[in-house]
Design a protein around this nucleic acid. Sequence first.
DNA 1: CACGATTATATGTCTAGACATATAAGTCAA
DNA 2: TTGACTTATATGTCTAGACATATAATCGTG
Lengths: 241, 241
Amino acid sequence: MSLVTDADKPTLYKLIRADIEKRILTGEWPPGHRIPFEHELVARYGCSRMTVNKALSELAQADLIERRRRAGSFVRRPQHQSAVLKIADIRAEITALGRTYGYELIQRKLRTATSADRDRLGVSKAGKVVAIACRHSADNVPFAVEDRLIDLSSVPDAATADFSREPPGSWLLHHVPWTEAEHTISAIVADERAAEALDIAVGAPCLVIDRYTWRSARTITAVRLLYPGDSHRLVARFKGG
Amino acid sequence: MSLVTDADKPTLYKLIRADIEKRILTGEWPPGHRIPFEHELVARYGCSRMTVNKALSELAQADLIERRRRAGSFVRRPQHQSAVLKIADIRAEITALGRTYGYELIQRKLRTATSADRDRLGVSKAGKVVAIACRHSADNVPFAVEDRLIDLSSVPDAATADFSREPPGSWLLHHVPWTEAEHTISAIVADERAAEALDIAVGAPCLVIDRYTWRSARTITAVRLLYPGDSHRLVARFKGG
DNA sequence: CACGATTATATGTCTAGACATATAAGTCAA
DNA sequence: TTGACTTATATGTCTAGACATATAATCGTG
C-alpha cells in the first residue's frame, strides 16, 4: 500500500482503483464525497460488477473509502497523523548502518515477581520473571541500554535461554510468534547510572522507549530502551492528514 | 485491520480468513510455511475458488501472507517493530483529554526563503515562506511550542490565513488534502528560550518532533514541536514481531 | 553437469448471473 | 409532528465456470 504508483501490470480493477485513488489524493474528491455507485462504474468501465467491487473493496480495506449499504461509498476523512514508525531490531538497525554491532549482558536475574514487577508487566498474580539489563553498541560506542522484564509464565523457555550471547529482543523475536505491543516514547535527562552506561554526561538528553508486549492477552515482556537523545532519532513516515 | 476478532457476521470467506490468521498468529504456521493451495481450501470448505481467493487476497493485502504464482501462498515473516504512531492534532489531543485548549500566536513572518529556510524545506529555488512560532496550552499550562515554516509556492492561501486565531496545523489540515510526511523524534534539553516558552527549567528534557510534510513531491510545511519530556508521551500501538 | 526448452500448475483476473441484507427514503396512521 | 411500517436500492457474498500468465519442475541436449 504505497502512495507511489505500483509499476505492475495495470489490470482493469487496478486501473479503477488507481483512478479513484488519484481523485482522492489530489483532493478532487474530498472527504465525505460520495464516489459513483458500483453500477455507474460498471457502465463507465464496461466491466462486470465483481470487477469494480474488487477495486472498491481494496480501497475500503486500505481505509481510503467507507462503504455503507444502501447509501454508497464515501471518501474517508484522513486519519490525522497516523504514522508508521519502524523501530527495527537494534542489531538489524546497527548492521544496516554498516556499523559493527556489539552486545553486552550487564545483569540477569531470575526471581519471583515483586509488586513493582507485577505493576510493570500488568499482571496480578505472582510468578517467576527474568530481569535483564544489557547494552547495545555500534562500533564499540554505546548505542542503547536495555532494561527488560520477561514473564516466565508466558515464556517459560526464557528461563534457560543464554542471554549472555544473544540479545533478549532477538531471542524473543525468534521464540515468540506474533505479538501486539504498545510503545511509549518520552524524554528524560541522564541520571548517573544512565550516563555511565551510555558514556554521556549526566544531564544529557535521552530518548526513552518503553515497550510493553503481549500476545492474545498474555503479557510477554516489558522493556525500557534508553538512547542518547542527540545521536538517536526515530523516523516515522506516514500518509494522511 | 485489528488483531482483535471483529464481531461482525462470520461469512464464509471471513471464516476462512480468520482460520488462517489464527494459525499464523499462534505460530502454528510459522513464517515461510506454505498454506494450503486454493483448491485444497476449496475442498476443505466446500465452496468456490473465488471465495477462498477473496480470503487469501485480503490476507495478502494485509501483508500477512505472500502469494507466488505456481508456488503457492506463504506466511510472511513479521515486519519487525512496525508501529502505528497516532500523533493527533494537538487541539484534538488536548480536548480529548477533557482539558481546555489554549492557543497563542507568538510570531508570524512572511519572507523570501533564506538559505536556512530552503534547507529546512528541502527546496532549491527561492520563494516566499511564512514562518510561524506559536504555543499550545492545556488548562493554561504550556503544552507544546511550535516552530513552523510553510512554503507559499505550494500553499499560496497560507499568506492571507489568520493564524492568530487558528493554529496553523489545524488550518493546513483543512486546506491541504492528502499529504505524506516524515517524523523525526528526538530528545534535547531545554535551552533558555524553550524553557521560558514551556515554563520549565533550563536543562529539563524535551521531546522533539520534527515533521516534514509534502504532497506529490511538493513541499508543504516543516514543523518542529517541542514538548516537555517528562509530561508528554507518544504512544504507538502495533502488531508484528 | 550445465543450460535451454517444454510442460504443468497455482495464482491472477474476469464474467454474468444469483440471493441476502442493511438501511435510506417514502408512506401512512395516530 | 412523530412514530411505525413498507419499499426500493446499494452493497455483501457467493457460484461455476473461463482464459491469462508467471514460474517451478521436468526433460533433453550438448
